[in-house]
């Protein structure tokens, strides 16, 4: 067994695990953080993305044994003070999570994007999320969710927001594009 101390979701954690395990396996099997998913374990889908020292990486290709002293953020660590991160709110509201399996990887990757570029363009969003495959959505509602979170994810953390659905924030899918009036 390997023993390391690392910071996971802003808390120091002691972990003991079999030496061959990847960060993905340590998180899911040894730290009971099953929010991080896996779709291939070979770096080919993006489902297992986590933030490692602030950068999105694929946890299936990170050696657990090499994570001592490092800082890991998973989907479980996005909410703070009992409030969801604005991206979590907009993903839930705007249909960015269908089956929800790729969602944790998209969320942490999008968080890193907003941390680095608080007002990304659509092209920057597409580029930043190009390493995350989603088979359900066609990505468009994901872009819209990221865009809707722009400006809410300040450096002070998530803005105050009721966790219940605010219907006014949900754009109606109108004829040929979101945000237009559906009635004709």
């Amino acid at each position: 067994m390997v023993q390391i101390t690392l910071t996971v979701n802003a808390e120091p954690v002691d972990a003991a695990f079999a030496p061959y395990k990847t960060l993905l396996e340590v998180l899911r099997e040894d730290l009971n953080l099953c929010g991080t998913k896996h779709g291939c374990e070979l770096g080919e889908c993006g489902a297992c993305a986590v933030l490692l020292d602030g950068q999105p990486v694929l946890s299936c290709l990170v050696l657990g044994v090499d994570c001592g002293g490092r800082t890991v953020t998973t989907v479980e660590g996005l909410a703070s003070d009992g409030r969801l991160h604005p991206l979590q709110e907009t993903f839930a509201d705007l249909g960015a999570a269908q089956c929800g399996y790729c969602t944790p990887g998209f969320l942490v990757t999008a968080k890193a994007l907003l941390d680095e570029h608080p007002r990304p363009t659509r092209d920057q969003i597409r580029d930043a999320l190009s390493g995350n495959l989603c088979r359900c959505t066609g990505y468009q509602q994901i872009y819209e969710a990221v865009e809707a979170a722009i400006g809410q994810a300040g450096p002070k953390g998530p803005a105050l927001r009721d966790t219940r659905t605010d219907a006014s924030s949900v754009r109606r899918p109108g004829p040929f594009g979101p945000g237009t009036d559906q009635s004709r």
Binding site: G43, G46, Q55, V57
Partner: peptide, 9 residues
Amino acid sequence: VATPQLRNM
């Protein structure tokens, strides 16, 4: 090369 995450690694 590959993807943003893989380029970070």
